[in-house]
Design a protein around this nucleic acid. Structure first.
Length: 449
RNA sequence: GUGGGAAUAGCUCAACUGGCAGAGCACCGGACUGUGGCUCCGACGGUUGCGGGUUCGAUUCCCGUUUCCCACCCCA
């Protein structure tokens, strides 16, 4: 049997109803803040992620699905039967050299911010001023699968990006995005979330902080865990993520980014807090909160939820004022976030069953020739926005009743010879047992009531 | 990538120190030929994840492998 490959999965009904519930809530809420949808390709040039996410990050260095695409003469790593492939190569050998020159390393997107910023640059979106864009879609990382962590996973994200003159740098944007997220979680009925907030400063702040941090680590490093010793070399900020109890006193003595914020960063951070307080969005300051991706500056945040085990972060994001320029674009400060949709769905209290719409009516054809009659009736009723399911003329009535009940239909409509002859149909409420005769013209109205 | 646990019917799970692979639910049929849910009866359902080994005999013990789960690493 061929199965879904490692780290991927099928989303089946009724769970898919829950996904739709989440996504339509997202579209509603984001729309109220004037965000519009963007869809970028699920694969991009590898270089985009190397430059945008950071060469040294775990994502880029070991978690990407990357392959060489060799231009139009073959399909890269796709399976091609030998003989056909050889024939193609023979006749194409003259063009092979050219094909080889077109070799390009491609990668399934491990996140979506880089793609959005790429599109922003490519289509000159700066000319539209401030852009508020959101996306919903699959992302891919070659990690060890775990609950709430898949190799194909889904993210819902949004980005506010534009030229500084459009206000893209303003702390008002940070606060607006955070308030929008609080609204979304509330709307979804998710309680018990925590917003953790920090500022990681400007690029210059981080450079000074990094130098100081490295210097402070030198004398104590020998006493720290092996993970921290490794982090100190690869990514010193991550030392703050350490959970080893013995290391905590040492970590407490290390400098904090908050001590290195320049006046602009400080004012920005304070302004964000002030607005959040005023609009009533609760938050917790966490000066050990760091972000894994290179492009983050200033505001960094995470929403966590206790019921998710070790994978407790339900969404994360922050400001990335230098990303556009790092990708060769114009100055375009921005702030964004990504929600782990798989985890979000997991943390929902509602059962999938409760958000799935049930059929309004199940039509039961009764006897030879009735399929045609019911098809016609179903078409009429569906045009009135009713959810209609139907049986088959060979079903015994009992079987239709059982199918209607199982489908959760509110009514069953019986269509037999007597009904067709009179053009009056038997409509029974499956919950109350009440049954009435209804003329064709009044059916939709009666069912809707 | 590292460490640990698990895998048996569509689903949830049993099966004693190695001895005929089972139950509940679901599904299908019947009791009941144009009136469901409840009840009763019956039927269907398995390469015990896959491959090897030990044994008269393996769901059970051993080795390998795949996948999932838990914890790391890291991250949404």
């Amino acid at each position: 049997m061929i199965k879904a490959v490692r780290g991927t999965r099928d989303l089946l009904p009724p769970e898919t109803a829950l996904w739709n519930f989440v996504e339509s809530a997202v579209r509603d809420v984001f729309r109220a803040y004037n965000f519009q949808e963007i869809r970028t390709p699920i694969f991009e040039a590898t270089e985009l992620f190397a430059r945008g996410v950071g060469e040294e990050t775990d994502i880029v260095s070991k978690e990407m699905f990357t392959w060489n695409d060799r231009g139009p003469l073959d399909s890269g790593d796709a399976f091609i039967p030998g003989p056909t492939f050889d024939r193609v190569r023979e006749h194409a050998s003259a063009k092979e050299e050219e094909s080889r020159r077109r070799v390009q390393s491609l990668t399934l997107r491990p996140e979506n911010t880089a793609g959005v910023v790429r599109a922003y640059i490519q289509h000159d979106l700066e000319k539209r001023g401030l852009n508020k864009l959101f996306y919903i879609g699959p992302q891919f990382r070659r990690e060890r699968p775990q609950k709430g962590r898949y190799r194909q996973f889904f993210q819902i994200g949004a980005e506010v990006i534009g030229p500084p003159s459009a206000g893209s740098e303003s702390p008002a944007r940070d606060a607006e995005v955070l308030e929008m997220l609080a609204t979304l979680l509330d709307r979804l009925g998710i309680t018990g979330w925590t917003l953790e907030l920090n500022s990681v400063g400007s690029a210059a702040d981080r450079a000074r902080f990094n130098a100081a941090l490295r210097a402070s680590l030198v004398p104590v490093l020998g006493q720290m865990c092996s993970d921290c010793q490794r982090r100190a070399v690869t990514n010193p900020l991550r030392v703050f993520d350490c959970k080893v109890p013995a290391d905590q006193p040492l970590i407490e003595t290390l400098p904090r980014i908050s001590q290195f914020l320049d006046n602009d960063s400080l004012r920005h951070f304070e302004a964000v807090q002030e607005i959040l307080t005023k609009v009533g969005v609760p938050f917790t300051l966490n000066d050990r909160l760091v972000r894994g991706l290179d492009y983050y500056t200033r505001t960094a945040f995470e929403f966590t939820h206790g019921a998710l085990g070790a994978q407790n972060a339900i969404l994360g994001g922050g400001r990335y004022d230098g990303l556009s320029e790092a990708l060769g674009g114009p100055p375009a400060p921005g702030i964004g976030f990504a929600i782990g949709e798989d985890r979000l769905v997991m943390s929902l209290q509602e059962s999938a069953e409760s958000v799935m719409k049930k059929p309004n009516v199940y039509i039961a054809p009764l006897g030879a020739g009735m399929n045609a009659e019911t098809a016609r009736l179903a078409r009429e009723l569906r045009r009135h926005d009713l959810i209609v399911d139907l049986g088959d003329e060979n079903f015994r009535l009992k079987k239709s009743f059982e199918a209607a009940t199982k489908a959760g239909a509110k009514y069953i409509l019986i269509v037999g010879e007597n009904e067709v002859k009179a053009d009056v149909f038997s409509l029974k409420n499956l919950a109350t047992g009440e049954q009435v005769s209804v003329p064709r013209a009044e059916l939709a109205k009666k069912i809707q009531a």
